[in-house]
Amino acid sequence: MMNDKVRLGVIGTGRFGRLHLKVLSRLPEVRIAALSDTDRGALEEAGAQFGISSHNLYDDPLMLIMDPDIDAVDIVSDESSHGPLILSALRNGKHVIVEKPLCVMEPQAREIAQASRDSGKLVLVGQISRFGQPYRMIKRAVDEGRLGKVAAIRAKRNFSRSWFEAFGNRIHPVYESGIHEIDLVVWYANSRCTEVSAFERKAAGYRYPDVFSALLAFENGIVASIDSSWLLPRGAPRNLVENLELDGTIDAEIEVIGEAGTARYQLAHPGFNIWTSEETLYPDAMLWPLEEEERVGGAIAAELTHFVHSILAGRPSSVMPLEESVQAIRIADAIVRSAAQNRTIQLEEE
Rank of each mutant, 00 (worst) to 15 (best):
L19T: 12
E44T: 14
G12W: 04
A340Q: 11
W275Y: 07
P68S: 13
I97T: 05
L43E: 02
V256L: 13
I345M: 14
P283F: 06
A151C: 08
R154H: 15
A141R: 03
L147F: 11
A313Y: 00
L287W: 15
I222L: 01
E45V: 14
Y175L: 06
A115V: 04
A72W: 03
G148H: 09
D284W: 08
S36R: 01
D247P: 02
V241S: 01
I11P: 00
G297C: 04
I86W: 02
H95F: 10
I11H: 02
T280L: 13
T194N: 02
G314A: 09
A166F: 15
D183I: 00
A260C: 04
E349A: 13
R161P: 03
E99I: 04
V308W: 03
E176V: 08
C193Q: 03
L57P: 02
E242A: 01
D4I: 03
I128A: 06
R337M: 12
R18V: 05
H95V: 09
A113L: 11
E291D: 02
L147R: 05
E292Y: 14
E255R: 13
F131A: 02
I226A: 07
Q49D: 12
T276R: 00
D333S: 12
V10P: 05
V10E: 06
S54T: 14
S310P: 05
R91W: 07
H309W: 05
V185Q: 11
E349S: 12
D67N: 14
F50E: 02
A204K: 14
A332D: 07
W288A: 05
Y208S: 03
I182A: 10
Q127C: 06
P283Q: 08
R7P: 09
E245W: 10
P316N: 03
Y265C: 00
E350H: 10
V6F: 04
R130Q: 09
E259K: 08
L64P: 00
T13N: 07
E323I: 15
R140M: 10
I171F: 11
L290T: 14
